[in-house]
Every structure is written in structure tokens, then in C-alpha cells.
Design a protein around this nucleic acid. Structure first.
Lengths: 186, 186, 186, 186
DNA sequence: CATGAATGAGGTTTCATTCAT
DNA sequence: GATGAATGAAACCTCATTCAT
């Protein structure tokens, strides 16, 4: 593990645990066993460190979403697959989930970075658009559909992580179904 | 307007615009026309100020939710009413919306405060529970249903505020419908 | 007990327990059940409060020193009496002892106040001077003798209060004797 | 001279001149030609700075006490030597004297620090104990004898520094003698 | 690439004091 | 005499960042 990676991982852990405002560089330096100068060798400044972290996590998430999707599946199967992909990525990476959720709408991440990061889930957008064209999905603005789905997944994940519900396959299917019912045509 | 109210209002505006870490007390002091000591007379420290703000806004939101609900309405009408109540509260109070959304899952707000604040939407929880008992809503954990609905509303509001979609009555009805379809029994 | 007395007593207790720097007016106000303004009605400011306390305690100490001294006693008996008087005053008033000891040489108490307070143990000074004239005490500067005696008493008291030694009559006599041996002529 | 040493020396001077509460960190920073952060790099906070200063001065004093003591000297000569060593250390280092005296019994210095500092004059304690065993000194608790001697020295030094007496060899001998007479057997 | 002592602007908070009631 | 909300200067300390090694 390189120093650079150590820093990014430590930052992720600290920021999700304590929040940005309670995570000074000094703490990141201490917990990642790195010298102050080393961080500034790899990242321009604190903002750049956060932006980089956000950006890399978004890319990782983008990759996770499309795993196992192939053209043999029918539309609804693809939808279920994507939903589960994202769900599992979040569930298995709770810190990354926390971070991405929290800073998605924060003034802390520069808009430019958010814009670039959006490209990572271009495939998801395309998928929704095609669904509408095919008449499988309702005529809602794509971003609404996208956000409805993402929102549902993140709510579901959060509740499992906070142990407000106990996960089981049946509940998972019901929840995906409830997502599907909210976007499919009747 | 008391000094205390001045401080809370200014804090809400500044924090939503700039973020917590970019809102120094000095700025709150200046913009609320109050002396430094006065803030610390009313609030223990910066954290307590934020906690108080969060708590009071949650209470206000709780009141907004149940307006106009009476026993003459049928279940689905009540649901639509509640959905619109919350939607309008957020849309008409964008700063409050921003703040509540952003700090809902932040380590900044003490867990104790979050717990207390939860009581403010007790009526909503009761409403969902009764819907399930009556067989109108699916057998999903109440908190999931609640969060699905809240999540949908907030996604919808955010997109209107960010001007990613243009609001109209038809779209509103479609969106509520998509929420309703995700929780109602088939 | 008047409000003024409440304030003085609370101040004595807090300052000896916490030190001057850790005893803000706000704490004195709280612990003495008095309003901020009330203190400033009785004392010009914080310095005046401390000065007054010091001054009144010195006066009280002055009175204690000369109790039971009458002309029927021989010189050495008077010395033992005075020594015990001061010893008992300190032992029975540990907070007053602490305070007087600590602020005796502190830049906190205005020199003017110290000067005035000195007059309270004029009788002790006269007593030493007469001892030297009578040839009973050594030819040492009066202030040295005075301070040697006071120093010994305070050391003795402090050790009892800190439970570094256990008090008994025999030890008391030995200690006074050691004081007497250090100033009497051979 | 390191930055750390600069800070300690400046602190000693300022605190003895003005007192703790009248010596803001800003003044220490200015007078020691150091940046604010530099102090906090070396010391945890203001209290730690004072504690460290106290501790280091005690150690220095401990070293001074035992200079020139060797086994060829008889007991009384050693006593006179030790007395003079401490006397001279205080007289030649008036600021250190002031500081050590003033904070010896102050709640400002943490008890833990005081405990550790006590070890620095272990040799003096051993010396007194051996004197009692040899029958040269009275059967008084060691700490009493120690404190009586220290008390006398400090009273003497203080009076010279305050110019309440004029120092000369004869007076010095008389004062040591008065100390000796208070602890030796008759 | 890596280090960590040093920086100093600016952060949060304290605190003696006032004054209208 | 007594109250306590309000004041704002100044206190302590933090923190992102630099730079000589």
C-alpha cells in the first residue's frame, strides 16, 4: 500500500467517523503514518484531497453498478441486477457509502468535480432512458427516476447499517419490487 | 424578534450557503447584529447552536406535515395530503430543507438530539402503521416506507430547487403516484 | 448572612480550591447565589474583591494572634502563646490559611493593601523588638525573626493539613521549641 | 538556544514579573520571538508549559543543592554547605526562586508534577535522615526539618531581594546558625 | 519521495463589567 | 440593594500549509 493510498483510506475513515470539520490534517497525518509534507506532495491541499477521494470513490461505484449486466437479460432482470449491484457495493463498503452520500450535496465538493463524477454512471442513465423509450418505464424525467432508485437503495442500506431492520432475501426482493413499482408503467 | 431568534435565523442562512466549516462564529455574530457573548449566553457552544437549530426545525417540520388532515378524508387522500404538506414545506423553505437534509446523517448533530427529533413525526409513523393494518399498504418495515416516501419527496424538491426539472401540477401528481405505487398493495 | 458576606466566603473557597486564574466572576456569581450586578454594587471590581478579602482576613488573623496575652506571663510563655494562637487560627481555618499564604507574595494583591495589612500584626513586631532589647532574643533583624517564626508555623500547619504528619501535643511542643531555639540567645 | 528554551525562559521572566493571570500567551509569543503554533508544538497548552517550567527548575535546584558535598566534610559542615548552596542558587536566580516559591503550593501545578519533582531533592532527605540516626539532629519528622530549613532560607533570600535587610557574611552565619539551632540536638 | 519543526492568520470561547429594570 | 441579559475586547488554541533537510 503506497503512502498515497494510506492517506486516502485514512481520510475516508476519519471523515465518515468524525465529519469533515472534526478531521484536521494533523489527524490524517498522524493516523496514516505519514509526514505532513508527504500529503502535500501527493495532493495540492485539503480540498484537493477530498475532491480526489470523492472522485475515485464515484469511479469505483460506477464500475460496481454495471457488473454482470449483459444483453441476454431482459429489461426487468437488468434493473434488478443494477439495483442489487449498487446495494451490495454500499452494504459492503459502508464508509464509502457514508462518504458519497454525505458529500453528494455538500458545498465542500467543487461543482466541477461533481460534474466529472456524473459521467461515471452514464450507463445507468442510458439504461433508464431506453426503458422509457421502450414503454417499460413511465414518462418521468430521467433524473427523477434515477434519484428515486438511488434514494431507495441508500435508505435501505442505511437502515440495515444502523440495524433498524434485519436484512433478509425476502425483504430485499420486496424493496426492489417497491422501487420497480414506482417507475414501471402500469 | 429576540436576539436568540436573530442568531438562529442567521445561522440557518449562513450554514446552508457556506457549510458548517466555512461559517465561523465571527460571521454569525456580524450578520446577526449580536455580540459574541450574547450567542454564548443563549447557546453553550457552536455545536449546541447547530443542535438547537436542527431540533427546532424538525419540530416545525413535524407541525407542517399534519396540517389539514381530518378524519373525513379516505386513506389515499390523507397520504396525498401529507406528501404535499411535506413537499410544500420544503419547497417554501429551501434553507430549512437544505439544512435538515444535510445534517440528518451528519456526525455533527448529536445522536441524542436526533432521537428526540424523531418524536416530531410520530403522527406520520402512526399513519403508515395503520395503513399496513388496514391492508392498504404492503407489509414493509414502517421505517422503510417512511424513508422511501421522505426520500422521494426530498429528491423531487431538490431537483426543482436545482432547476433540474420544471415544476408543474402534472409532474407533481405523477411523482406522488410513483411514491404511492411503491408502498400500496397490488 | 448578607449577600456581601456570601460573596466573600464563596470567593475564599473557590480561589483556594481552584486558584485565582480558574475562578471567574461568573463562577463566584453562581456559587454565591447572587446576581452579577450585586457583586459590583459591593466591590468596585474583581481586584477590589480580592484585596478586600485579603485585608479582612489579615485583620482577623491579627486579632487571633494576641488572644490571651496578658502581662502576668513571662516572655517565653507569651512567645509560646502567640505561636499557638497563630498555629490554631491557621489549623482551624485552612482556607484562610491557604489564601493568606498564597497571596502574601503575589503581585495580585496591591502593595498598598499589603502595607495596610502589615499594621495588623504590629503587636507581634513590638513583642520581638522588646525581646531583643531585653537580651532574650538574638540580635537578628526583626523581620527575619518574624518571618522565621511565621514560616515555621505555616510549614507545620501545611504538613498537618496535607496529612504528611499526624498532629500530637508532643510534636507541637517540639516544633515550638525548635522555633524558640532558633531565635533565643544561647 | 532552541525555540523551546526561548519560550521557557521568557515564560519564567514574564510569569514572575506579572503573575500567571496577567501573562497571556500572546505576550509570551511576542517576547520569545516565536510563532503561536511553535509553543503548542512543544507544549500541550499553557498549563503544560507552566508544569514543564516548574519541573525543570526543580531539577536544576536539585543539582545545585548537592554541589561540593564530599565525604571528607563533617556533618555540620555539610549542613552549612547545603544551606549555602540553596541560598546562593536562589539569590543568584531570583526569578527561578520567585517562581518555585510561588507555585510550590499553587493549584496551578498538577499534583502529579509536584510528586515527580519531589524526587529531585532526595539527597537532602537522605542527609537529614542520617543526621537523626546519628543523634546529631532532633527526632522530628524529616519533612518538618526539611521544610523548616527551606522555609528559613527562602525567608532570608526574599528579604535580601526585597531589600528589607542588607546582606553581609555575619548575618548569613547568624541565620544559618539559627537554622542549625532549630534542628540540632541540645 | 519523505520528513516534521515552524508558521501565523484566524478560529472558538471566556470573562470582567455594564445598565436598564 | 438586587437582578441578569447583553457586551466586545481579548484570551487560548487550532490548523492548513511551508520549507529546509
Amino acid at each position: 500500500m503506497t503512502k498515497r493510498e494510506q492517506v486516502l483510506e485514512t481520510t475516508l475513515n476519519l471523515i465518515t467517523d468524525l465529519g469533515f470539520h472534526a478531521t484536521p490534517m494533523a489527524l490524517i497525518i498522524k493516523k496514516s503514518n505519514v509526514a505532513a509534507g508527504t500529503i502535500y506532495h501527493h495532493f495540492k491541499n485539503k480540498e484537493d484531497l477530498i475532491d480526489t477521494l470523492y472522485s475515485e470513490l464515484k469511479a469505483e461505484m460506477g464500475k460496481a453498478i454495471i457488473q454482470g449486466i449483459n444483453e441476454e437479460l431482459i429489461y426487468k432482470e437488468k434493473f434488478f441486477r443494477i439495483w442489487k449491484n449498487l446495494f451490495l457495493f454500499f452494504l459492503n463498503n459502508p464508509k464509502k457509502f457514508e462518504f458519497l452520500e454525505h458529500y453528494a450535496h455538500s458545498p465542500l465538493i467543487r461543482k466541477e468535480i461533481k460534474q466529472v463524477s456524473k459521467s461515471y454512471y452514464r450507463p445507468a442513465i442510458d439504461f433508464i432512458e431506453s426503458g422509457i423509450k421502450l414503454g417499460i418505464l413511465r414518462e418521468l424525467p430521467v433524473d427523477i427516476s434515477i434519484n428515486l432508485i438511488f434514494g431507495n437503495i441508500s435508505t435501505f442500506v442505511r437502515m440495515i447499517l444502523l440495524e433498524e431492520i434485519v436484512f433478509n432475501e425476502e425483504l430485499l426482493e420486496k424493496t426492489i419490487q417497491s422501487s420497480w413499482d414506482s417507475i414501471k408503467t402500469n
